[in-house]
């Protein structure tokens, strides 16, 4: 009887954990393959434990250059998209103006458009304008699809802020600029940081839009795609596992950071 009651209370949790395991299974496979020496180049059986790939991650020709390029593109796109998106989020939250609804739709549309359509239409534009494809066109494309996610993320944070805090700041003789710098900005910062992290991960991981607008420039996902046709070098799994661990570390750091009052 007790067992039945316990099961009735906890089966959802059990089902949820099974689904979570399904989400994490490929990551475990990638981590496993990163310390595995397969018996031949085209087989992915678990054969022999090795740390060679972790010791020499750049042993696969061209891969590290592609990773560095993806990081550069990611940083640049994140910087531009975060600045543009944050400004727009402030504009949409704090002000009522003609065209506000149209602007919201303009922000929403890129998120509701399949990547293959966005990528191909940019290619059609660059082709018609005879813009040479490469590093710059990739950054332009990444900023375009990241900016909407930044706006939505920062806007959600700003919408949750108590407007009375600004009135309180004014009561304490803070001018508008001081109130912004000492009250609004610190409170909005977690949202801005989250948006930047999201933008970086979207940019670093993007394949479809990039593939249309890269020309001969190779980013890390494009390198993986090309390598997949001839057998993936094991070092690719090292990068995948390392990205996962870095993300976990970042999250752990933000969660453990001591909170202090910032007024």
């Amino acid at each position: 009887m007790r067992l039945g009651r316990w099961l009735a209370d906890h089966w959802v949790l059990g089902a949820g954990l099974v689904v979570l395991a399904y989400l994490l299974l490929p990551v475990a496979v990638v981590a496993g393959l990163s310390v595995n020496r397969a018996s031949s180049r085209l087989s992915y059986d678990f054969h022999e434990f090795t740390l060679d790939w972790w010791a020499h991650p750049c042993g696969s020709p061209g891969m590290c250059a592609a990773v560095v390029r993806s990081v550069q593109i990611g940083f640049l796109s994140t910087l531009v998209a975060t600045v543009l998106g944050t400004l727009m989020a402030f504009g949409l939250t704090r002000h009522r103006f003609a065209g506000r609804g149209a602007t919201s739709i303009l922000v929403f549309l890129p998120m509701a458009t399949p990547e293959v359509v966005m990528g191909s239409s940019l290619l059609a534009l660059f082709g018609a304008a005879r813009v040479p494809l490469g590093f710059a066109t990739i950054v332009i494309a990444h900023v375009m699809f990241c900016v909407s996610f930044v706006v939505v993320t920062v806007r959600a944070r700003l919408a949750g802020l108590d407007p009375q805090l600004l009135e309180a700041a004014a009561d304490l003789y803070a001018g508008p600029w001081q109130a912004f710098r000492r009250v609004t900005l610190p409170l909005a910062l977690p949202g801005i940081v989250a948006a930047a992290l999201l933008a970086f991960s979207l940019s670093f991981d993007d394949f479809i839009v990039t593939n249309f607008n890269a020309g001969t420039t190779t980013t890390f996902p494009m390198y993986v795609w090309g390598a997949a046709q001839r057998g993936i070098p094991p070092q690719v799994n090292v990068i995948g596992t390392a990205m996962f661990l870095i993300a976990l570390l970042l999250v752990a750091l933000t969660m453990l950071r001591p909170r202090r009052a910032r007024f």
Binding site: P26, V27, L33, I239, G240, M243, A247
Partner: peptide, 20 residues
């Protein structure tokens, strides 16, 4: 744990499914 797999590139995870 739901968001973390995002950071292992989705191409690499899809290739992992190929292995599985």
């Amino acid at each position: 744990a739901v968001i973390a797999p995002f950071f292992t590139s989705f191409l690499i995870r899809t290739l992992a499914w190929k292995t599985i």
